[in-house]
Amino acid sequence: MWSIFQAIKRSWLKHFVTQISAFLILLATYVAALSIILATTNMRSVFEIWGKVSDITIYLQQSASEKDVEKLKSHLASHEKVQGFEYIDSQKSAEDFNQRLKDLGSELFNQSTIQDFFPANIKVNLNKPYSFQADKLNLSLFSNALKERFSFVSDVSYGQNWLNQYSKVLLAVEKVNWMIVLAIFFCSLFVAANVIKTVLFSRRDEVEILEFVGETPMGIYGPHIVNCLLLSLIAYLLATVVVAGLFHSSLNYARSVLPAQITGEFQFLSPLAWTGFLGFILVSVYFYSLSAVSSMAPTFTGGRWWKK
């Protein structure tokens, strides 16, 4: 153990700048990866709130008779998903529209002229909020069933278009984020492995002599692997502190500009995300060590390839 730390110390004294560079690369990688994971998971939870559907509007065709409406009302009254509903005829619809225009201080339309453009509709309160993402199928089954059963229902709306687009954007952003994490991972892998390789290459004569007096591969490469583990561990802890600091300061800012309903959902990493991040680090450390050591493998074959 002691000799390992002596070897690490020697390596740091000799290759201070290289070692620091490797450390900074690791730190930058971890900060970037952690930030992206954090942003992605929080975006998702915000979407979960925005994507809650608790109201549905059923639009009726002009031709719908009073009897039709009664039939639909009684169906809704007995439906398990429905908590309550309100029928709004086209006159009321137009009035509501005019009222909104009035609130905005705009000119009013002639009530009877625009009445035809406003279909009668039923505002339905669902028994609980449904997640747009998770209950997509449920919601579309419900609306399709209504359309099929009542031919005078022209459309059922729960903000599909907007939510659909939003979720598409979200998925695309998530995909890009994961690609960025992967790209950073491979870049840093490449750089860090080459840093170790460089350090080892500059030690090639020393390695040869150590082999000469019977040092085992573990004795030669062990210190480099331990060094790599230590650097990763420190970079990991530091990255967590940095990202947590950034997160909390940006959360404070977000609280001042966003509704509490949304900022309340923001969280630092969930246990699952933590596990993922730790896995990311372990895999990266494993590959750093492996690539560094395997890069030196020809040393042992007896052919001293660097002398040729």
Binding site: I209, E211, V213, T216, P217
Partner: peptide, 24 residues
Amino acid sequence: NKTQIAKFRQSIGVVFQDFKLLND
């Protein structure tokens, strides 16, 4: 293999023409 070679070298003493000393 490499580890066995190392063990083998620990059991012998070798002097080569180019000394092979660690300069640091």
